Amino acid sequence: MTTFKLIINGKTLKGEITIEAVDAAEKEKIFKQYANDNGIDGEWTYDDATKTFTVTE
């Protein structure tokens, strides 16, 4: 398992979430669903070196 981080830079929601997953593709799906469930629609980036997804509205 690898630890992945999501950084949220939303208009109404900001924060960080850290979760373990098998791979980045699995985690991306979970993070995007979390963002969608919380009304966050923005630009996504991924840094493989730090295993960090960022979504910015």
Rank of each mutant, 00 (worst) to 15 (best):
residue 42 G to K: 03
residue 41 D to V: 13
residue 20 E to Y: 15
residue 9 N to C: 15
residue 45 T to A: 06
residue 20 E to P: 07
residue 57 E to G: 08
residue 32 K to V: 07
residue 48 D to K: 04
residue 21 A to L: 14
residue 28 E to R: 07
residue 9 N to L: 13
residue 41 D to R: 10
residue 16 E to R: 09
residue 43 E to F: 11
residue 34 Y to A: 03
residue 52 T to F: 04
residue 52 T to H: 04
residue 24 A to F: 11
residue 55 V to A: 03
residue 7 I to H: 02
residue 34 Y to R: 01
residue 41 D to G: 08
residue 31 F to R: 01
residue 24 A to V: 13
residue 15 G to E: 12
residue 45 T to N: 05
residue 25 A to H: 08
residue 9 N to S: 07
residue 33 Q to I: 07
residue 33 Q to C: 12
residue 36 N to T: 11
residue 1 M to D: 04
residue 45 T to V: 08
residue 12 T to A: 08
residue 45 T to H: 08
residue 23 D to F: 08
residue 38 N to Q: 10
residue 7 I to R: 03
residue 44 W to I: 04
residue 21 A to W: 14
residue 14 K to D: 09
residue 20 E to A: 11
residue 12 T to G: 11
residue 25 A to M: 08
residue 46 Y to I: 00
residue 34 Y to G: 00
residue 38 N to V: 11
residue 15 G to M: 15
residue 54 T to G: 01
residue 33 Q to R: 09
residue 16 E to C: 15
residue 40 I to N: 02
residue 50 T to F: 02
residue 54 T to E: 03
residue 21 A to F: 14
residue 26 E to V: 09
residue 34 Y to H: 02
residue 43 E to R: 07
residue 57 E to D: 08
residue 10 G to L: 15
residue 26 E to C: 12
residue 29 K to Q: 09
residue 39 G to K: 04
residue 13 L to M: 12
residue 56 T to W: 13
residue 54 T to C: 12
residue 49 A to K: 08
residue 17 I to L: 08
residue 4 F to L: 05
residue 22 V to Q: 09
residue 27 K to Q: 15
residue 40 I to S: 02
residue 47 D to E: 03
residue 16 E to N: 04
residue 18 T to A: 06
residue 39 G to H: 06
residue 8 I to W: 11
residue 14 K to L: 13
residue 51 K to Y: 09
residue 5 K to N: 06
residue 55 V to I: 10
residue 40 I to Q: 01
residue 38 N to M: 14
residue 37 D to K: 07
residue 3 T to R: 10
residue 47 D to Q: 01
residue 19 I to M: 06
residue 15 G to S: 12
residue 26 E to F: 09
residue 15 G to P: 03
residue 27 K to C: 15
residue 54 T to F: 10
residue 1 M to A: 08
residue 23 D to R: 05
residue 41 D to A: 10
residue 50 T to E: 02
residue 46 Y to P: 00
residue 48 D to G: 03
residue 54 T to W: 10
residue 30 I to Y: 10
residue 39 G to E: 04
residue 23 D to N: 09
residue 32 K to S: 05
residue 16 E to I: 14
residue 33 Q to F: 07
residue 3 T to M: 10
residue 4 F to T: 02
residue 49 A to H: 07
residue 2 T to W: 15
residue 11 K to Q: 10
residue 17 I to T: 03
residue 18 T to F: 13
residue 2 T to R: 07
residue 3 T to K: 13
residue 37 D to N: 05
residue 21 A to H: 08
residue 32 K to F: 10
residue 41 D to F: 15
residue 35 A to P: 01
residue 42 G to E: 01
residue 44 W to E: 00
residue 34 Y to T: 01
residue 29 K to C: 14
residue 36 N to L: 15
residue 25 A to G: 09
residue 33 Q to G: 04
residue 46 Y to T: 01
residue 47 D to Y: 04
residue 33 Q to T: 05
residue 25 A to P: 10
residue 34 Y to W: 15
residue 13 L to P: 02
residue 12 T to F: 13
residue 34 Y to N: 01
residue 13 L to I: 13
residue 50 T to Q: 03
residue 55 V to N: 02
residue 7 I to N: 01
residue 57 E to P: 11
residue 10 G to Q: 03
residue 10 G to R: 03
residue 17 I to W: 13
residue 11 K to D: 05
residue 32 K to C: 14
residue 47 D to V: 03
residue 8 I to H: 01
residue 53 F to D: 01
residue 57 E to N: 10
residue 15 G to H: 13
residue 21 A to R: 05
residue 42 G to Y: 11
residue 17 I to V: 08
residue 22 V to G: 07
residue 8 I to Q: 00
residue 9 N to Q: 08
residue 50 T to D: 02
residue 41 D to W: 14
residue 39 G to V: 05
residue 53 F to A: 03
residue 41 D to N: 12
residue 28 E to Q: 06
residue 43 E to Y: 12
residue 2 T to Q: 08
residue 20 E to L: 14
residue 14 K to M: 12
residue 26 E to D: 14
residue 45 T to P: 00
residue 5 K to C: 13
residue 38 N to R: 14
residue 14 K to T: 12
residue 23 D to H: 07
residue 57 E to W: 15
residue 16 E to G: 07
residue 48 D to V: 05
residue 1 M to Q: 06
residue 57 E to K: 06
residue 14 K to W: 14
residue 19 I to L: 09
residue 7 I to K: 03
residue 6 L to R: 00
